[in-house]
Amino acid sequence: MMQNASRSKRLPPIESKQPDWEKKWSDAEFAPWWHGQKPHAMVIEALARLKIPKSARWLDVGCGDGQLTCALADQGMDMTGIDFAPSAIALARAHAEKTGASAQFAVADAMNGPIPGAPYDIVHDRGCLHTIRAPGVPLYARTMRAHMKDHGRLLLAHKEDGKVPDLLGFLENGLKGFFTLEQARRMRFSANGIEKAGLFCVFRAA
């Protein structure tokens, strides 16, 4: 009953950050600290533990310029990356063409959809949800679940910033009714000599 109520409940609209991110990605001088990140070891471990087949279809949500999406595609995953900033998707497509990665990209909003190519077996999020303010998390959860197969998995990496004392509780509560937690482990985001603490979580579609 709780799951059905959660999915049918009207959720308030949330002001989009799309203009801010479009401005960033359209700036040739924009150099985010996370550039050059590789697929985290915990993602690779989850592939083996969950016995995710190579035929599984992946959605990389909030893909930015597509570097991580392409890196996952190079490991044999069937990847589609989405971002709501058209400039980011243009960069992602250019990166895939330059590197020869067999990844697809589309402009789409993680909180509102629609997302082309659905349904997906796996949603990979390494940097999207932790930019969404708390009121927007249920919208994100509803949209992700609507574009996934039954019993699909959400592989979520979420950084800690000190603003949320109980990050795991925050994530479980925000995704409740759409996803159930299977695993949570502490992790480190690392790129360009910068490290940040976070959580790596595996959620199953409810």
Rank of each mutant, 00 (worst) to 15 (best):
M2P: 13
M2F: 12
S6N: 10
S6Q: 11
R7C: 08
R7Q: 11
R10G: 10
S16Q: 09
K17D: 12
K17Q: 14
K17Y: 04
P19V: 03
P19G: 06
W21I: 05
K23F: 14
E29T: 14
F30G: 00
P39D: 09
L47M: 15
L47I: 13
R49A: 10
R49V: 08
W58Y: 15
L59N: 05
D60K: 06
G66R: 02
T69N: 09
A73C: 08
D74G: 11
F84Y: 15
A88D: 00
A88T: 03
A90P: 00
A92E: 04
A94R: 13
A94C: 08
E97Y: 10
T99Y: 14
G100S: 01
G100P: 04
A101R: 00
D109S: 00
A110V: 02
P114L: 12
G117T: 04
G117D: 03
P119G: 11
P119W: 06
V123P: 01
G127D: 05
A134R: 14
A134D: 12
P135N: 00
G136L: 02
V137R: 09
T143I: 04
D150N: 14
L154Q: 07
L154C: 01
H158R: 10
G162F: 07
N173V: 06
L175Q: 03
T180R: 13
A184K: 10
R188D: 12
F203G: 05
F203I: 02
A206V: 10
